[in-house]
């Protein structure tokens, strides 16, 4: 029986779920982000210890050196839950789809000067492997981090990184077919310029502290790599040299970096503000990783620009990263 119930006025018993009422009161109707994110992870009466590491708990905040009184303080300023996340990305992929079509229909690749194509080949395509590492690293943070508001965006970030690796692969296929991907993988495995980065990522894939992985991958490495490669080399140098087609095909990466760094910065800031002890640990991670990855990225930048300029670009990116760190409350 379908009844016409639209007109009834009935009083509500509960404005919200109890766990949300405890956190936010019940004056306001909770947002869908709040309903989808807070207190979803089991916290008590975990039944068994992991057989893979019996010294750990099934959900274990002590896997990290970082301590939070409440991990649910680490909320995502984008307020991404599955629905808002996919709707956003679907819109972006539509844009990317039409970007690929535009580049194809205008024959932008064929009209591109050889040096530009060479840079795309040598610098961009191998980065698909780096994005895969970022996918794996974020999957670890999602799996082993503590508290849904911290771990949830990491699965989105992991899938984004896979998406980026796939966009880079399509770019490769467009400029040089399967051979372009093969050559890029060869470079990734063997060429001198890429070895420091590959080694560092293999090292990072051995780290098991979820927050350390988060900071080193998402704040430090991506915080250097994206401004350096996409904002400076692609969107400035390549565009000046007639490579706007490339810039169109990496638009997702540029926008994604700007969007997601708001989240990464906010996590860093909240963790640093939590305690002096956290701040010390975070400063040590950021400081060593920033110095390390800066030197690692120097030969990578050298694939696109002359030595002096590479130095300059990399140190600009480094300064920018330290500015972000300071804004987040570190190093003061």
């Amino acid at each position: 029986m379908q009844i016409d119930v639209q007109t009834v006025n009935i009083e509500q018993k509960n404005q919200t779920f109890t766990h949300l009422k405890k956190r936010f009161g019940d004056k306001k109707i909770p947002s869908r982000y709040q309903e989808a994110s807070y207190d979803l992870q089991a916290v008590e009466n975990l039944h068994y210890r992991p057989t893979w590491a019996p010294e750990q708990e099934l959900y274990d905040p002590n896997l990290s050196k970082i301590r939070m009184n409440d991990w649910y303080d680490l909320k995502d300023p984008r307020q991404f839950y599955y629905s808002t996340y996919t709707l956003n990305r679907a819109k972006q992929q539509e844009t990317m789809e039409s970007n690929f079509k535009t580049v194809e229909s205008l024959n932008l690749i064929e009209g591109m000067p050889d040096p530009v194509l060479a840079i795309a080949q040598n610098l961009l395509i191998p980065l698909r492997h780096a994005s895969y590492a970022a996918n794996i690293n974020n999957t670890l943070v999602c799996g082993y981090g503590y508290g849904t508001v911290f771990t949830q965006p990491c699965v989105y970030h992991a899938m984004d990184n896979l998406g980026i690796a796939q966009y880079l692969s399509r770019l490769g296929l467009m400029i040089g077919d399967v051979e372009a991907l093969e050559a890029a993988k060869q470079d990734w495995m063997d060429s001198d310029a890429w070895q420091p980065l590959r080694r560092s990522l293999e090292d990072l894939m051995c780290v098991r502290d979820p927050v350390e992985v988060f900071i080193k991958q998402n704040f430090v490495l991506d915080g250097l790599l994206y401004p350096l490669v996409y904002q400076r080399i692609v969107d400035q140098n390549l565009v000046e040299q007639g490579g706007s087609g490339i810039s169109i095909l990496t638009q997702f990466m540029t926008n994604w970096y700007l969007e997601s760094k708001r989240w990464v910065d906010s996590v860093l800031k909240t963790m640093a503000a939590e305690s002096a002890e956290n701040k010390v640990v975070l400063e040590e991670w950021v400081d060593t990783a920033a110095n390390h990855f800066t030197s690692v990225l120097l030969p990578v930048a050298g694939l696109a620009v002359e030595g002096n300029q590479a130095d300059e670009l990399v140190s600009e990116a480094h300064d920018e990263l330290l500015q972000r760190a300071k804004k987040a409350g570190l190093f003061k």
């Binding site: 050889d114 080949q121 994005s131 692969s169 040089g176 077919d177 399967v178 051979e179 993988k185």
Partner: peptide
């Protein structure tokens, strides 16, 4: 490096988009 891309079948394309990313 300019080439006309070969037509890849779905399986091969998916392999390149996932499998081939790891090393």
């Amino acid at each position: 490096i300019k080439k006309t891309p070969k037509k890849l079948n779905v399986k091969e394309k998916y392999r390149l988009m996932t499998r081939d990313l790891a090393w």
